[in-house]
Design a protein around this nucleic acid. Structure first.
Length: 270
DNA sequence: ATAAGTGTTGCGCA
DNA sequence: CTGCGCAACACTTA
């Protein structure tokens, strides 16, 4: 799930559904995903009332009356609001509310459930070092972000310290929409390219947010998102025709990740 | 049935 | 500064 559209949707859902509720119990099945001891985790959250839920990049951030509660779902996972007597089989961390509901949190790889002091979110380094949210960044800030950079454009867009929220699923369509090859280096981009890329980021993220996020992830209430494989332009569509020109879409290795491109619309040499 | 592939992140190294 | 490989170890697909 773990890209900006899904996290944005989860934050909105949680804002509506759990703000104002009080946590009366916490259970941790996988202590490894915490940044503090189980005892400190419990002490931070049990008795706390949830005040608000936002996100920064792929981090879901809940402010409570006692501590901040920060979630990163890694490479996929759910935050489900369920009854305590109707829990799913697998969950790694659970927060129980006083009304009998619970948040059941699961992820299948590399997730985190952290806490940070009530008065000092900046102490949470993993979220504090993130760049501005990809969706909120304005054109001038985006230009400044690229100025002086020499590396590949795909590496920069995936670097959460520079711009937060884009992952290796949405980036295929973002680059396609901007007509940019993932291996293009930043200095080869014209100002028109930079504007197109800025617009593509907003447009592609919005397209998914408006549908409730990717269909391979579940909402707080257990419903799949409405952004399906059919909505993708070139991502994960190897061999299928480019929606613009019909050229077969290619899959290529770009560093340690894969990329999907239209070789005609996204030429490497310019 | 076994193995490779995968949406994340931080770190060390060249 | 940059790219790259690795380590965290679950689940699907070939």
């Amino acid at each position: 799930m773990p890209e900006l559209p899904e996290i944005t949707c989860r934050a909105r859902e949680m804002s509506e559904a759990v703000v104002g509720r009080r946590i009366v119990g916490a259970k941790v099945r996988q202590p490894k995903c915490l940044n503090v001891s189980v005892d400190d985790f419990n002490a931070g959250l049990v008795g706390a009332q949830i005040r608000g839920v936002t996100h920064h990049g792929k981090w879901l951030i809940s402010e409570t009356s006692q501590a901040y509660f920060l979630l990163n779902l890694g490479m996929g996972g759910e935050v489900l609001l369920v009854r305590q007597d109707g829990l799913p089989e697998t969950w790694r961390v659970r927060l129980d509310f006083e009304d009998g509901d619970a948040l059941a949190i699961n992820f299948w790889w590399f997730g985190y459930a952290h806490t940070a002091p009530h008065d000092d979110l900046a102490q949470h380094t993993m979220s504090a070092v993130l760049g501005p949210n990809a969706f909120d960044i304005d054109l001038d800030t985006f230009r400044e972000l690229l100025a002086g950079r020499r590396g590949r454009i795909k590496s920069l867009l995936l670097d959460q310290k520079r711009i937060a929220g884009i992952g290796n699923a949405y980036i295929h369509d973002i680059l396609f929409r901007a007509k940019l090859h993932p291996l293009r280096t930043v200095p080869t981009l014209s100002d028109d390219d930079v504007c197109a890329l800025h617009e593509a980021i907003r447009a592609e993220l919005t397209r998914s947010i408006d549908k409730g996020g990717a269909s391979y992830e579940l909402s707080l209430h257990g419903k799949p998102g409405g952004f399906t494989a059919e909505d993708l332009l070139v991502g994960y569509r190897e061999g299928k025709p480019c929606p613009q020109c019909g050229t077969p879409i290619e899959k290529l290795k770009t560093g340690s990740t894969s990329s999907f491109i239209c070789p005609h619309c996204q030429p490497l040499d310019t």
